[in-house]
């Protein structure tokens, strides 16, 4: 538990070096705008996947509405930077805070639900956010919000990714994070050991939403233009797929999963007509042959076998 040791130092060096080298390559034009666009997407997906992993992988709460928090972040930053002309850091912070507040508001009532039911409720919430977005003229309705300044640079992107990964990794090593993991493992035992499960579920949900909001801000301020449809149910599924593909409750897995799946979809763009069909087949094969993900850690609660309808009364 020492602050500075060899491993920490090496990690720190690697982080700085990656930043400097990539920054240099971008500056000198070795990384062109097309590659950079994909780097931005990978970075955003890492933030989304790591933050959803906190909710679903570690805390075991099945969410199908993560994209909604991203969208809240994207619109918040869009409004703050485009409409109000505020600097990017205000946009990011506002995005994160508003998404977090939404996380609290949604989390408190819905996190009483379990398993599939929670998944459905969060899905419903995501759709509601989308529909409200579609019908709100101030933010452009269905046509979307335009002319958002492009503030997302390599530095901002890298900084946000590193901060997200670092803070969430730190969090899960704290007693609060342990409490969250224990809920994912066995809610009844966690409660019996003094863990206020409602509080920690909401905490995980709020933190996850906070970072999803940051991802939204980075997205909005890179693509100039956002519309509610970009943050629908399928986007939430995409994030969940990264988490499962990478490995539940594995931060490294989420990072790796985000990179690999972004690369896969990059290659699939070569066959536009069959892109989604091939993607579907790949998903299917992963679920059949590697359901525990690249870095799978074994049987988690949500990973529990389903059995029959009576699955929840045979636990004696």
């Amino acid at each position: 538990m020492k602050l500075i040791n060899k491993k920490n130092m090496l990690g720190f060096l690697a982080v700085i070096l990656t930043y400097a080298i990539a920054g240099f390559l971008i500056d000198k034009g070795f990384i062109d705008s097309y590659i950079f666009l994909n780097i931005v997407l990978i970075g955003i997906n890492i933030i989304l996947a790591v933050s959803l992993n906190l909710i679903t992988g570690f805390t075991g709460q099945f969410s199908l509405g993560h994209a909604a928090f991203m969208s809240i972040g994207a619109y918040t930053s869009g409004i703050l930077t485009a409409k109000l002309g505020l600097p990017f850091w205000v946009g990011i912070l506002g995005a994160a805070l508003l998404a977090a507040v939404a996380g609290i508001i949604i989390g408190i009532p819905t996190l009483r639900l379990k398993g599939d039911y929670l998944a459905i409720a969060t899905l419903g919430f995501g759709e509601i956010v989308k529909i409200i977005g579609l019908n709100t003229d101030y933010i452009g309705g269905a046509t979307g919000l335009n002319d958002i300044p492009r503030y997302t640079t390599w530095t901002w992107l890298y900084f946000c990714v590193v901060v997200t990964v670092l803070l969430i990794s730190n969090f899960i090593k704290s007693y609060k994070g342990r409490a969250c993991i224990s809920i994912g493992e066995d809610e009844i035992a966690a409660e019996a050991m003094g863990v206020n499960t409602t509080y920690y579920k909401v905490l995980a949900f709020t933190l996850g939403s906070f970072f999803a909001g940051i991802a939204g801000a980075l997205y909005a301020n890179y693509f100039y233009f956002i519309k509610p449809d970009s943050f629908g149910f399928m986007k939430s599924i995409d994030i969940l797929v990264i988490v499962v593909f990478g490995g539940m409750a594995s931060i490294k897995g989420s990072i790796l999963g985000a990179v690999l799946l972004s690369l896969i979809s990059l290659f699939l763009q070569g066959i536009p007509e069959l892109r989604m069909v091939v993607y579907a087949v790949i998903l299917f094969l992963i679920m059949v042959y590697r359901p525990q993900g690249i870095i799978g850690k074994g049987e988690f609660k949500l990973f529990k076998k389903r059995g029959g309808l009576n699955a929840n009364n045979q636990s004696k």
């Binding site: 599924i237 579907a280 087949v281 998903l283 359901p291 990973f303 529990k304 076998k305 389903r306």
Partner: peptide, 14 residues
């Protein structure tokens, strides 16, 4: 015999 999330993603892939 698989898990909830794996099953859900499989259904989505179908």
């Amino acid at each position: 015999k698989s898990t909830r999330i794996a099953a859900l993603i499989t259904a989505i892939s179908v």
